[in-house]
Amino acid sequence: MTTLSLKNVRKSFGGNDVLRGIDLDITTGQMICLIGASGSGKSTLLRCLNLLEPIDDGTITLDGTDISEPGFNPQPVRQRIGMVFQSYNLFPHMTAMDNAMLAPRRIHGLGRAELEPRIAELFTRFGLGERMQHYPDQLSGGQQQRVAIVRALAMRPEIMLFDEITSALDPELVGEVLDVLRQLRTEGMTMVLATHEMGFARELADTVCFLDQGRILESGPPSQVFGAPQEARTRAFLSRVL
């Protein structure tokens, strides 16, 4: 049972308070959707979870270990927490297969031959069986984003973070990426998503958190947050996006 737990997490960039006291528990098998306007702190929160940004105050614990302690080695944590970015961030000089194999090869010291069947299976599972020897610029946006997901999954993470991964995609390509998330959901992957896909959040999330000005203003099951929002700001946000 993996638990990632945030207590009073604060983060500011040059006097601009982006996270102002976040409390959140993420347990195995859960899917949590972070919703909220641009600039509400969703992306920063995800980057803090993966230790890409050090937090200013509060604690983040992973299975009881304080991983937010200054000087804590982030590498083992990042190996357990996968992340997918809005702009894919594939390595353009490598094929899809090499993108996915780089981290397991370097970190677990595995050879290509050992890794290839397992990673090829991942690509095939997400409809990229014909595309794994292609370079990123030979792939569509939706395909690139799916490669990025496979690349993160290749490290066999326990938790996956998704940072608005469909926001840069043409509308007709959003579906194929959301299908991958649906599939991961049925396999029981623990996921935290920052998303603008309200329909998707409503359909699949266990918990929806509405972020507003660096705070979780309201959270609960989607039926409650979408169906009967308690806060005026949540209602205002939802009426703008739904």
Partner: peptide, 11 residues
Amino acid sequence: SQRAAALSLGL
């Protein structure tokens, strides 16, 4: 973002 992607994998 390339550095961030590489680090996020645990490299």
